[in-house]
Each structure stands twice: as C-alpha cells, then as structure tokens.
Amino acid sequence: MTDGTDLPAWAAILTALFVVAGAGLTLIGSLGLLRLGSFYQRLHAPTLGTTLGTGGILIGSMIFFSALGTRPVLHEILIAVFVTVTTPVTFILLVRATRQRGTDLPPPSPPEKNTKDLAH
C-alpha cells in the first residue's frame, strides 16, 4: 500500500507527527466553524486549518517525499504559498459582502406572511 518500508525511522516518525498535528488542527478549526455563535466568530475558526493544518501536512509530505527519493522535494511550497495568499483575500471579500448585506439577523419574513400582506 505505502512505500514506507524502506523509509528511515526518523523520517517516518517526523512525517507521522506533522501529519497528525496538521489534521488535528484542521479538525479543531472545523469544529469551531460548526459550534461558534455568530458569523464573524465563525470566520476565525477555519483559518486554523488553512494556516497551521495545511502547513503541518505539507511539511510532513515534504519530509516523506524527500526521504523517499533521497533528494529535496519542495514543490509542496507551491500549495502553501497559494493557500496563504488566497485565504485572506477570500475572507476579506466575504466579510465585505456580509457587511453590505446588513446585520446578522434571521432570514427575512416567511412566505405565508407575504401572501397575507398581499391579500390585504
């Protein structure tokens, strides 16, 4: 299944450590997205996954493929740079759209009230 049989022990342990830490931080961020109260609070939670979670898993992947190929494999930096640059841009746009849409109120009036208003 995996080519980890001919991997040195230090590389396997480091990869395991980084990958589990990154996945755990991503899980914490997603749980925060599920449980926090308002939209502006929820906006902070997934950034834990996009920064530390992505960084941990990418560092684990870099260590694994470098030890497997006995040469430095650095193309994971591409994903890290891209995610780090794009996440603030998307969240700034999202917050701007939310501010323009108004306060964090429940959705507008249900349809049966509208039909009653139309009937009057």
Binding site: M1, T2, G4, T5, L7, P8, A9, A11, A12, I13, T15, A16, L17, V19, V20, G22, A23, G24, T26, L27, G29, S30, L31, L33, L34, P46, G49, I57, F64
Partner: peptide, 23 residues
C-alpha cells in the same frame, strides 16, 4: 516505522473526514 506511518495516516484521514463532515 512503516506501521507508525500507516497508523498515523489512518488517524489523520479520520480527523480530516470528520472535519469535512463538520464543514
């Protein structure tokens, strides 16, 4: 070392699947 790596990957994939479920 391969056993450690396989188990760590199983745990990480479980974590990520639960995170995807939350999202």
């Amino acid at each position: 070392s391969a056993t450690i790596l396989v188990w760590a990957l199983v745990v990480a994939q479980t974590f990520l699947a639960i995170a995807m479920g939350c999202a």
